[in-house]
């Protein structure tokens, strides 16, 4: 494992913890989106471009949109 892998993984861990701590759902979703994009980068680093493209489109695209849509119909704070 290289330094790039390590840094990306560290970022993932920090994002995951932040999602657990924050009270604001919108910021949780934004952090989750960042998490997904980092995940896509990591997959690119692991030589799986197919998964990276799919994760970028589905994970950080559609899932985030769905979460935003649900929050817009409910409420923002926990």
């Amino acid at each position: 494992m290289t330094l790039v892998h390590f840094l990306l993984l560290l970022f993932l861990v920090v994002c995951a913890f932040f999602v657990g701590r924050t009270k604001d759902l919108i910021s949780a979703v934004i952090v989750f989106s960042a998490y997904s994009l980092t995940m896509a980068l990591l997959w690119q680093q692991l030589a799986s471009p197919d998964v990276a493209i799919t994760e970028a489109a589905i994970g950080s695209g559609v899932t985030t949109l769905l979460l935003f849509a649900a929050i817009s119909r409910t409420r923002r704070m926990e």
């Binding site: 657990g20 949780a28 979703v29 989750f32 995940m39 799986s48």
Partner: peptide
Amino acid sequence: IKKIIGMNIMESAIFLFLVA
């Protein structure tokens, strides 16, 4: 909503494990 985000985080960690 947090639970659902947590679910996604958990599943993508499993996927990361498989790809690794």
